[in-house]
Amino acid sequence: MMTPLFVTNIPPVGWLLIAVVVLVLFGRGKISSLMGEVGKGITSFKKGVQEGKEELEAADAEAARDVTPEDEKDKA
Rank of each mutant, 00 (worst) to 15 (best):
E54Y: 14
I31Q: 02
K75W: 14
D66W: 09
L25Q: 14
L5H: 09
P4T: 00
K53L: 14
A64S: 12
G52Y: 13
G29Y: 11
T43N: 07
V21N: 09
F6Q: 02
E57C: 07
T8A: 06
M35T: 09
A76T: 07
P69M: 04
L17I: 11
V38A: 12
D60T: 03
I31K: 01
K46P: 02
A58E: 15
V22G: 05
F6H: 07
T68G: 08
I42Y: 04
M35V: 15
I10C: 01
E62Q: 10
G48V: 05
D71G: 00
N9E: 11
V7H: 05
V67G: 06
E54V: 07
G36C: 01
L23H: 15
G39P: 01
T68D: 13
N9W: 06
S44L: 13
G36E: 03
P11T: 00
V20N: 03
T8M: 06
S44N: 11
L16M: 14
T8F: 00
A59K: 09
A63P: 02
A76C: 00
I10L: 04
I18M: 09
G14W: 02
E72Y: 08
D71Y: 09
E55H: 11
K73A: 04
E54C: 09
A61L: 14
K73C: 03
K40F: 09
E54M: 14
P4M: 01
V22S: 05
K46V: 04
K30D: 05
T43F: 03
M1T: 08
K73V: 09
I18A: 11
K47F: 05
E57S: 10
L5E: 12
S32R: 12
F45W: 15
G52E: 10
P4Y: 02
K47M: 04
M1P: 08
P4Q: 00
A19F: 04
E62I: 04
A64Q: 12
T43Q: 07
A58H: 10
A63L: 14
N9D: 05
A58S: 12
P4V: 00
R65K: 15
L25A: 13
A61G: 03
V38T: 11
A58T: 12
V7D: 01
T8G: 02
S32T: 10
I42E: 03
L25R: 13
P12R: 05
L5D: 11
E72S: 05
G48D: 11
D71T: 05
Q50I: 05
R65C: 06
E62D: 08
I31V: 13
L56H: 06
K53W: 15
L23K: 14
V7L: 15
